[in-house]
Design a protein around this nucleic acid. Structure first.
Lengths: 350, 350
DNA sequence: TATGGTCAGTAAATCGTTACACCAGATTGG
DNA sequence: CCAATCTGGTGTAACGATTTACTGACCATA
């Protein structure tokens, strides 16, 4: 049974290939139940499976969703990929996963690769402020859902974005620290020109101000411009940032990190310096990866509802599948949640 | 420029489609340089990209490698996926990533899905002792490379396996602990019927014996049989195992965990009990995920050379691409390396 | 001038599926 | 009773590439 085609099924069932095709595509309305049964049985008997390539060549459609993440090396993206795959599977879709390593060129490369493969729906996790490098493909009909990247003013009009409210998240993190009595705070992030950082930092600042404090310095880890840090190296960013920040006079007692990996790096750096997290210094992360709870001390963090976000993304794709007419895009902002654990406490009295 | 076909390129270059195709497929031997140039320019001018579906329908070949991992939620698999993708990209291949969640049914589902998509090469990360559920597709010509799963006696004959030597790994871990003076050791693992566990436990036992000690009990976390633990939940396994083991009299001073996620769970569990890792109890993991080094204390672990393994897997696939004749499979066992960090030390003198 | 051999490139037949147009026979309506 | 409608399908032309077999044109040899 090397390869069984629709023709063989047709012959076995005593009908034409068209009829088999009609059944396969849900056009079984005008069809005798007996015929339907004969075909169904023939399919089962022969173990027939439609040839995707032929089908796609003919229709130009695929039931595959492309997912481009910065790096599955970062557990946050791994977890999200898992959730998205789960949601897609439930709708009969498959997910094709790619790592951009936050490199715009790789990002473009993958988008084109996916397009060539017939994929017309892509969930893109990017922090790039501009989507210009993809505009030409979007114009051709690519349906793009951006994740973890709020919509920007000059995005192509059909783009849908699903994200948390970063401003709220940054605010939650910082106000948690000010509420505990911290008065000197720092925001740690790589210098990626990330739209998330902007929002989170904004929320951070507003919380600091509304606590009647001066906005603390944000550490711009400029080394990142020379050799861009991937998500895996995010931990290094945090670690190195800490070494620099705490070498200066009057170091902060509270740190908000751009994500959990960076936060873990921050914790590691503090330990290098003989400081104890959750006592000498409080640390807040972002994402709530599995390891946040596993760490010592468990990490206080701003949780992203990835499961819900994944479902939203798939729902968006399913509802527009195969539609050629361009609807204007939408932007969904979900509210993040602060998860308080052991890495934060009142500042030392000294 | 909605869609540009090979015909349009041919017309633009003033040749037939066949000639364009010949150039595209490296048959440019008998072709005037001038013609070649005209075609090349036409391709660039029109932005032509061959239609994959058509190409595949005609040739029956794909340059896509399927990768099935237990769960990208586990950073180890995320890191491996990244490495494999990197190696594949360098050879002009793409990687299609799927999560089996260690569920044999999902595993089969994905293999068939990939097969239908025209994928003929799959890297399968599974711990199942048997590959019977895939035999029928392997017979049809699927080339399977198993990863992190040593070859088994009754595997289909064409299967290639790439793995570390688990016996050596288990031995390294345990003899490190006995060398530090530990005399009561425990091996912690979920009860997954994993071929890895068998090997690692065997190495563990041999090391214990050659140190002149009695083989300690292996903790079979039987709860896993009822509700199978995915890789993400591996940490819970470790944590719960510790609570149970250390409730008994005469608890061990050294623990070897089946992987790093479980080891981190073990550390978390020890902390729950007020014990200090690297002082009261020593812990050794397996894999060397990024977080092992980031943890507090940094985790001693047995490293898998995933980068090298990924390259081997791709090399295997590239060298046999499109070959119909079945060569007998091979099995490659790499030597793991012990990375000593702060989670292990001499046992307390008490 | 036959004969044959390169050279450079082309025509046409696929690959497996889909979808539009069509059709024969039965039923209905006025 | 004739035309219109419905029922349950079928025939066929794509979709875009690859590949085998072939064709003129040109050159060399005997």
């Amino acid at each position: 049974m090397e390869k069984v085609t629709i023709q063989q099924v047709a012959r076995a069932a005593g009908v034409s290939a068209s009829t088999v095709s009609n059944l396969l595509n849900g056009r079984s309305g005008r069809m005798l139940p007996a015929t339907r049964d004969r075909i169904t049985e023939a399919i089962a008997q022969l173990g027939y499976r439609p040839n995707r390539a032929a089908r796609e060549l003919r229709t130009g459609r695929t039931r595959t969703v492309g997912l481009i993440v910065p790096s599955v090396g970062n557990p946050f993206w791994g977890a999200f990929a898992r959730e998205l795959e789960h949601a897609a599977l439930a709708e009969g879709y498959n997910v094709l996963l790619c790592n951009s390593e936050r490199d715009p060129e790789r990002e473009s490369h993958y988008v084109e690769e996916l397009w060539d493969d017939g994929v017309r729906d892509i969930v893109l996790c990017t922090s790039l402020p501009s989507l210009n490098h993809l505009a030409h493909i979007i114009d051709q009909g690519l349906r793009l859902v951006t994740f973890d990247r709020p919509a920007q003013a000059d995005d192509p009009s059909t783009v849908v974005s699903i994200s948390i409210n970063n401003v709220v998240g940054g605010h939650l993190a910082a106000s948690h620290l000010t509420g505990l009595g911290h008065r000197r705070l720092t925001f740690v992030s790589g210098s990626l020109r990330s739209v998330n950082r902007t929002g989170r930092y904004q929320g951070f600042c507003s919380a600091v101000e509304s606590a009647g404090l001066a906005v603390a310095d944000m550490t711009l880890w400029t080394g990142a411009d020379e050799s861009p840090f991937g998500d895996v190296e995010a931990a290094d960013v945090g670690r190195r940032a800490v070494h620099e920040i705490f070498a200066a006079a009057d170091p902060p007692t509270g740190v908000v990190a751009i994500n959990d990996m960076t936060a873990l790096g921050v914790c590691r750096g503090l330990r290098d310096l003989g400081l104890q997290v959750g006592r000498d210094v409080s640390v807040v992360g972002f994402d709530d990866i599995i390891l946040a709870d596993l760490y010592d001390p468990p990490l206080t963090t701003v949780r992203q509802p990835i499961s819900q976000m994944a479902q939203l993304a798939i729902a968006e794709i399913v509802s527009h599948h195969g539609l050629a007419h361009r609807e204007p895009g939408r932007s969904v902002l979900l509210r993040p949640e602060l998860i308080v654990r052991g890495s934060t406490a009142a500042p030392p009295v000294n």
